[in-house]
Design a binder for these strands. Structure first.
Length: 338
DNA sequence: ATAGCAAA
DNA sequence: TTTGCTATG
């Protein structure tokens, strides 16, 4: 299972406002997973419309994307394609965890143990085709581009920063840095106060910015070495070496120069090592995307959110008007919104 | 997660 | 204005 390399990364606290005028490639699955997992009622059930269909993702996407547009942030949502074969162990393990959590969720809900119900409901969160489809529709009405990655969304998003088509990747995972993303932002949210799980405590959460070059320069390594470190620690594609964390991995890679030499020195092996390195260093990505942002289609959004999904007309219209208002100061061309 | 409201 | 809390669909 993958562990993370955050202890050796350089983190900068920023504000949502600091991202104004930036182009952001948003890891769509990562973001949707968060919305579906967190946007719930007190008893652990998701937000639903009158037909009983989940709407948590639409709420999250609509309000967060609107906030970005108000700040002149230009988002593009990047969706996952086919995962690499080597990811299937991780995918299977996650599936088992989800299924076990779902059983516990049902039991907790029956016992009216809502604290545990929420916990297990969040752990059993799953994205389905309908959630993805509805998100793409809403984004289209909002005038936001979607990109469909051939394989991992994070590698596609990273590729787009390397090409200079976007400035930053937005995700909770650190993997995009391994894929070469020039910048990564975590905790991309507007609200500052966040409730701690299972506690009554509130805590400040601000966006965190990671700049790849700063990380590489600090440790005097190149990206290949960073990938080697991650593989030693463990990724979505390999288990990692027991008792080697990011700090020890960094030391070993600097001492021996490459993962192959480290493995020889400690007498260990990693299966499919070349294939794993290739996933990070030569990912399957596409140049077939077009990034254009259009003015939100107010009528279609109201029809979709309010008529089809029972959103409050008052709130939706207010939000859309606020986007328009923030735009009137700025110059814009006829067709394109930005 | 975010909006919106009430109390401090 | 800031903070704490509930409702949202």
């Amino acid at each position: 299972m993958s562990r993370n390399i955050s202890p050796i990364l350089v983190k900068k606290e920023v504000s949502f406002e600091d991202l104004a005028n930036k182009k952001l490639a948003i890891d769509a699955y990562n973001t949707l997973y968060q919305f579906i997992s967190i946007i719930r009622q007190k008893n652990g059930t998701s937000l639903i419309n009158s037909k009983g269909n989940i709407t948590s993702h639409l709420s999250g996407v609509f309000y967060r994307t609107s906030n970005m547009l108000k700040k002149n942030i230009k988002p593009v949502y990047v969706f996952d394609g086919e995962p690499p074969q080597l990811k299937f162990d991780t995918i299977d393990k996650r599936k088992i965890i989800r299924e076990e959590a779902f059983e516990k969720y049902i039991i907790a809900r029956e016992n009216k143990d809502f604290e545990n119900a929420i916990k297990y409901a969040q752990m059993s969160t799953r994205l389905n085709h309908k959630i993805i489809e509805e998100t793409v529709i809403l984004l289209k009405y909002l005038g936001i581009p979607s990109v469909f990655a051939p394989s991992e969304g994070e590698s596609q998003a990273a590729f787009m920063t390397i090409k200079g088509d976007v400035d930053i990747v937005a995700s909770q995972d650190y993997d995009s840095l391994l894929f070469g993303s020039t910048q990564l932002v975590r905790n991309l949210a507007v609200g500052k106060k966040r409730k701690l799980p299972n506690k009554k405590e509130y805590v400040d959460i601000t966006p965190e910015l990671y700049i790849l070059n700063e990380i590489l320069e600090k440790h005097e390594i190149d990206r290949e070495a960073l990938v080697d470190i991650a593989i030693l620690v463990g990724t979505d594609y390999n288990e990692g070496i027991r008792n080697i964390g990011p700090k020890k991995a960094l030391k070993l890679i600097k001492k021996y120069g490459s993962i192959e030499k480290v493995l020889a020195a400690i007498g260990k092996e990693i299966e499919n090592l070349d294939d794993i390195k290739n996933i990070f260093l030569h990912p399957n990505v596409t140049e077939e995307y077009r990034l254009v942002w259009y003015k939100p289609d107010k009528e279609k959004i109201i029809e979709f959110l309010c008529n089809e999904h029972d959103f409050s007309r008052e709130r939706v219209i207010k939000t859309l008007d606020e986007i328009n208002l923030s735009k009137t100061d700025q110059q814009r061309t006829l067709g394109e919104w930005f």
